[in-house]
């Protein structure tokens, strides 16, 4: 095995990791503001992947171009879900929130199973086998595009939170809920917007990931776990932590596939999670809660 091969595989892992990071970012945004853990995250991602698949196979639309449509659709779903389902649970005990979203997850994954069946589907774009050659490195075109799109979406979300009035208002809710209520912010609406934005992130990520992996309903719980692992490693509620965690997990999965067997690659992620929880439970970039 040459260094070139290793570098290629690692870079491929990092590029996939950036898509994971976008998915985890959605989870982190929702938790950071609403303090509700979206246990149906991977299931929403699978929903987006199937949406990308359906749009691609019926209209031939490239998932890259379908990303805004699917992200928009998931935004709506997230908005409505928060308003109709999650809102009354915000003040309820943690385990009840968890069980509620678990129920949503069960409904989503089995709904997908009913409609699409257990067999794997795939989205094969025209440039699926093309690659960029940079010196000795060979980069898959789809992975580069997906990673670039992920960065673009993540960046625009960060800018939204930093500069727009609504973004600032959402951050205010997260920093000091009582203060935000006192100055008259519409918390209900802002929470729903936040859940929508988190869902849009995972929608975009799912759409992009559909180009990289085969789609099955059984992928959903794995993705939920993966998203959790990433945000816990990076630090729950920390946006830059989610990005770092995604890249780390992507790279470590690729490395595990290379060093051991591919079927054991998630062992690496779980091992990493257990290690982080044992040594630094607040995550790599998380702040210790007081």
């Amino acid at each position: 095995m040459t260094w070139d091969t290793i570098a290629n595989i690692m870079i491929g892992g990092v590029l996939t990791g950036l898509v994971y990071a976008l998915m985890a970012l959605g989870l982190s945004v929702i938790f950071g503001v609403i303090k509700v853990v979206n246990f149906a995250h991977g299931e929403m991602m699978a929903l987006a992947m199937y949406a990308a698949f359906v749009i691609f196979s019926t209209y031939g639309l490239d998932p890259l171009l379908a990303t805004p449509i699917i992200a928009g659709g998931l935004f709506l779903i997230g908005y409505i879900m928060q308003r109709a389902l999650v809102a009354p649970f915000v003040t309820r005990p943690e385990h009840e929130q968890f069980i509620l979203l678990l129920a949503v997850a069960i409904l989503l994954v089995n709904g997908l199973l009913l409609i699409f069946g257990p067999d794997a589907q795939s989205v094969m774009v025209e440039y699926g086998f093309d690659s960029f050659e940079v010196g000795p490195l060979i980069l898959d075109k789809v992975k580069v595009y997906a990673a670039a799109a992920s960065i673009a979406v993540a960046l625009s979300l960060l800018l939204f939170f930093k500069y727009t009035r609504t973004g600032k208002a959402i951050r205010a809710c997260s920093d000091n809920l009582r203060g935000a209520q006192v100055v008259g912010l519409n918390i209900k609406n802002l929470y729903a917007l936040t859940f929508g934005l988190g869902a849009a992130c995972v929608g975009a990520a799912g759409c992009l990931l559909s180009m990289l992996v085969d789609i099955t309903p059984m992928l959903a719980p794995e993705l939920t776990l993966l998203a959790f692992i990433i945000v816990i490693i990076g630090g729950l509620g920390s946006l830059s932590g989610a990005l770092l965690g995604g890249v780390l997990i992507g790279a470590s999965e690729a490395l595990a596939g290379l060093l051991i067997t591919p079927s054991m690659k998630s062992l690496f992620s779980f091992g990493l999670l257990i290690l982080v929880l044992a040594i630094r439970p607040q995550g790599l970039l998380g702040k210790r809660s007081s």
């Binding site: 069980i99 509620l100 678990l102 129920a103 949503v104 997850a105 069960i106 409904l107 994954v109 089995n110 709904g111 199973l113 009913l114 069946g117 257990p118 309903p217």
Partner: peptide, 14 residues
């Protein structure tokens, strides 16, 4: 159809 029972469990749980 696979998943109907689980779907039903999900509804009950919800």
């Amino acid at each position: 159809a696979a998943g109907v029972k689980q779907l039903f469990y999900g509804v009950i749980l919800l």
